[in-house]
Design a protein around this nucleic acid. Sequence first.
DNA 1: CTAGGGTTAG
Length: 618
Amino acid sequence: MSSRKLVSTIYDHQIPQTIRSSLHWAQTKSTHLSPPFLPKPPSFLATNIIKSYFEKWQMKEAQLLFDEMPNRDVVAWTAMISGYTSCNFHKRAWTVFCEMTRDSINVVPNEYTFSSVLKACKGMKSHFCGSLVHSLVIKYAMPGCIYVENVLLDMYSTCCESMDEASMLFEEISSKNAVSWTTLIAGYTHQGDGHGALRVFRKMLLEEAEMNPFCISIAVRACASIGSYMYGKQIHAAVVKHGFQTNIPVMNSMLDMYCRCSSLGEADDCFYGMAEKDLITWNTLISGYEKTYPNESLNIYARMESEGIAPNCFTFTSILAAVANLAVLSFGEQVHGAIIQRGFGGNLELDNALIDMYAKCGNIMDSRKTFDQMSSKNLVSWTSMIIGYGSHGYGKEAVELFDEMVESGAMPDQIVFMAVLSACSHAGLVEEGLRYFRSMAGDYKINPEQQIYGCVVDLLGRAGRVEEAYELIRSMPVMPDETVWAVFLGACKMHKRPDLGKLAVSRVLELRPGIAGTYITLSNLYAADGNWVEFAAARKLMRRLGNKKETGRSWVELQNQIYCFVSGDKVGTHIEWVYAVLDKLVQHIKDVGFVPDIDDFLHDLDMDNLVHDLEVGT
DNA sequence: CTAGGGTTAG
């Protein structure tokens, strides 16, 4: 319906069903006006209709009506700005604001206008627009209004790289309220500075500001982000004290906190203690179990379905991650089917999770198919695909995809560089990898982090260029951490360089003592040298640590059955089939000229037992 | 006509 017709229907009292409710609302608000419809429709009536259009996401209708309003006051303008913002059309909201300022003879923005447009700036992540509005706020002598101050705070928190501007502004607010505190804490948390967030939260407690569920839930989220079980537990006590245990968002973030602090038992307690749960509650538990117990994660999902709760995109991304961890292709395909069936096909995050799932389940073709069919891609999409190629040994494809990504205009980050570097490393594309490494600082002004150095050390090390890898470590602008040395250690081991290897071991032990694997490698280095005294000493040290290297497991999926086995397995379901397949594989790799490295195997099994026998004196 | 919280992917 055109707005002209709409206006005439208002005159004719033929109110369409769609706007009857809002009109009714307007009438009850205007009982002092008699008759209810003035010769010209009062601005507030049209404004309320505009508002109700936006609530139904009917932006065209709202705009049409606004365009035909004879007297557009500040309230109508603000309704347009806030309406577009609430529909996530932030740029459009900004344009409306600009139009409004051009009409400044007839209309002057007020605190409502500034609040709305600042929210749009936040949505656009535009520090430029935001500070422009800030200057207008000052010009119109608007500071002092707590609504405007709080949304300015929020805008600076989201649009700035650091929290400096926001916290400065916060200090200047004379009458801070609970919203101001919550906004500041949320700002720190969302920027990944959990410690900063908790510092502010502590200050808030000391100043005895009003405590409410909003603030608690974001503080708990801060605990979760830094993995602080101690603080999380303390805030849990405060939650009980304030009687917030029935608040679902509070308990959801509490649940998430326990999951991220790997206290799944307490997460369970939270979950079962909740009288009321919502979809986020279930999703949080499913995603909490996904990393460590993917099996259990799927069980929880099954329980959720049996209780008649419908999953959403969040649910399915966690489920796909669980399936990817389990690497069970047949299950992954079923989940993919369910996703399409429920109408979640084409969701960006889900497609990214599908790429990852198919790659980890060994079906790189379907990863690529998913990737190609995506209508829009983000960095994660490209990275997932490159990691998939890399782990399948398709270095050339990974490199090509990276170049294609750059051509498409996407801005690479550390992680996607790690992906392409590790793909180069596994495929032996040393020169290509080094070129990418140099381009990071050269073309993209990215300072490589430790993990990038780890990748390049691996790249050189695998290719046998151990000396160059060592030189790279020595030339690093930051102190190499234990992960870099550990990678280097692997290269020393692979290319039989006990001299540099022992150096690497001592660095790893200095920086991160207590990892059994380091001692194993050290002892193997001595074994390769024939130095059995040192070998035994290293093994002894390791045994004293008491922590064992996690057993590596392998499994094959055959006709919808999973057959799981470990090295040296003698028992298991159809273990003889496993060995039959294994024999064929070994024959095949021998045929293509591969010589397996059995050094570790010998030391780990036979020599270790020998040392043990010597120790106990048998 | 205006402000703050909880679950997803590399």
